[in-house]
Write a protein that binds this DNA or RNA. Structure first.
Ligand SMILES: NC(=O)c1ccc[n+]([C@@H]2O[C@H](COP(=O)([O-])OP(=O)(O)OC[C@H]3O[C@@H](n4cnc5c(N)ncnc54)[C@H](O)[C@@H]3O)[C@@H](O)[C@H]2O)c1
Ligand SMILES: NC(=O)c1ccc[n+]([C@@H]2O[C@H](COP(=O)([O-])OP(=O)(O)OC[C@H]3O[C@@H](n4cnc5c(N)ncnc54)[C@H](O)[C@@H]3O)[C@@H](O)[C@H]2O)c1
Lengths: 251, 251
DNA sequence: AGGAGCTTGTGAACGTGAGAACAAAATCGG
DNA sequence: CCGATTTTGTTCTCACGTTCACAAGCTCCT
């Protein structure tokens, strides 16, 4: 769309190299769908095909792709390999990003053992933990190292992405250390809201929240008529005991 | 201006017991923040306090809470315990929901070992796997059982939520089996788009996608002026080799 | 009692995103 | 060479979500 020829007086100031956030979040899904098609030996796909594979509707997919440029051919569709490359380039996964994982407990172990990151644009360069009994343990090809080495590792390997899988308590401290060391993107698994300075991106993954969202809808399905059971406005001290639902900050 | 649409007589359809999806997704965050405040012995909190604890702005928080009812006191704030109970009730986590986990590999083990679900409204009633060498293994208080027992377990324990942590390949089959057995909410960790019939809710957690979203922004930060390196429109066969970035469907 | 000072709840403006619809471009058959 | 057919890229409109701003309502102090 940014063909040099058209100087559009149009209002929305398109393609100032800025892609809507909602679209950015879907590009990885398209990338995966394209890879699947490619692996099946399919060379060309229409927006309809792609949309089905990605689980979205085709108008949305076409609009999303139009932010990257005009990479399709009218009457034909998209060249799978070519589009895959363009999306990978736009996302920035044509070369690997160095990642450190902090907190090698249950979840950290699972991530460390996961082979899927390497094929998707990421390279885990270090597994860090503060627990001395864990340091030195081998996981696959890697060895758990002391969290104190963080700064050296970040500097040596140009690490820009950090993954936090420690308990909630130390998470903010770990986060601060990561940021101070130069990490500018953080993926947080601990159930706390982390605060970071401007310029640092943070995303969270929270399984309890996902389950609770499902629970809300589940309650709607089954409870249609069973809701009025609970009083709408019990006295301030007159509500049932609620042991500790919602989860605290502890590990 | 977008001033049009003078044909909207009724306000915004006064909440027919329907809470906006974006709000539903934030309620669990508020619930957690309230629990943290409660654990700190704080009995009352203003929308500003709560908003800070939850990492949102206070206007949004107040609007979100207003969908549940008028549970605050002007000039004072919100009673922490009372509001916590109201949100828990709205989400539906005042009593536990039965959950099964299918695919007890790296990730399944981590989830099985996680103690946080019990305190947040969920009870894991079974760990299922198709691999006979895994069946019978003890994990904490539980034992891995054969996937074939799914139907019995769902029926016996009134399971409505299923978690899929199998490789991508079998995920759709597992999903179909879950749905057929009566599960109506699914949390999927496998990197595939699952299709489910109407009435079944599905949510996905995809770590590679989260990392790729971070990578996109990361590239923006560092690449400001380094982008023009790559040609905008290379010949269809003239692009660099892209080994397999984007990830396939394999495990 | 009455006013000062807070804080909620909400109406309205604004911004972003989704989807329907269609004109523009490409292929293909005759 | 032309018209039928296919499918993209884009425009338009509507729905949803966020933020501002402020009147309504509560408490406390004098
Ligand atoms: N395991 C799950 O399935 C699961 C599910 C949802 C959320 N979570 C969250 O993910 C996080 C990790 O969970 P887990 O089950 O792996 O916990 P875990 O207790 O098994 O592991 C935490 C690890 O972090 C390390 N650690 C603690 N403080 C540290 C510090 N200051 N610096 C570096 N390392 C430190 C500990 O030594 C430990 O190895 C927790 O916040 C948990 O709430 C886990
Ligand atoms: N481990 C991670 O950190 C991680 C990260 C991102 C995504 N994932 C995704 O999560 C999923 C699980 O990852 P993992 O590392 O635990 O894999 P894994 O291979 O360790 O475990 C998969 C388990 O599923 C079981 N299984 C296979 N087919 C089954 C079937 N038909 N019915 C029941 N059980 C079956 C296997 O026996 C195995 O125990 C994968 O889809 C992976 O892509 C994992």
């Amino acid at each position: 769309m940014t063909r040099a020829s058209s100087r559009r007086p149009g209002p929305p100031t398109r393609t100032e190299r800025g892609i809507p956030e909602a679209t950015v979040a879907r590009l990885p899904v398209y990338l995966r769908a394209l890879t699947a098609l490619s692996d099946s030996g399919i060379a060309t796909a229409s927006s309809e095909d792609l949309a089905t594979a990605a689980g979205v509707n085709s108008a949305k997919l076409r609009k999303d792709l139009s932010y990257l440029g005009s990479y399709g051919t009218r009457g034909v569709g998209y060249d799978v390999e070519y589009l895959r490359y363009q999306i990978a380039r736009e996302i920035g996964v044509t070369q690997d990003w160095a990642v450190v994982i902090v907190g090698i407990g249950n979840l950290g172990h699972a991530l460390a053992n996961y082979s899927g990151f390497g094929t998707r644009g990421f390279r885990i360069v270090a597994l860090l933990d503060a627990d001395p009994t864990l340091v030195g343990e081998r996981i696959g090809e890697m060895e758990v190292r002391d969290f104190a080495e963080l700064e050296d590792i970040v500097k040596a390997d140009r690490v820009s992405i950090g993954v936090i899988t420690t308990p909630a308590g130390p998470a903010q401290d770990v986060c601060d250390r990561l940021v101070a060391a130069g990490v500018t993107s953080i993926l947080n698994f601990a159930p706390v809201v982390l605060s970071v300075p401007d310029g640092v991106d943070i995303r969270k993954v929270d399984l309890s929240i996902e389950l609770q969202i499902l629970a809300y809808h589940e309650q709607r399905k089954s409870g249609e008529a069973a809701l009025p059971q609970v009083p709408e406005l019990p006295a301030l001290n007159g509500m049932p005991d609620l042991p500790s639902v919602g989860g605290g900050v502890g590990a």
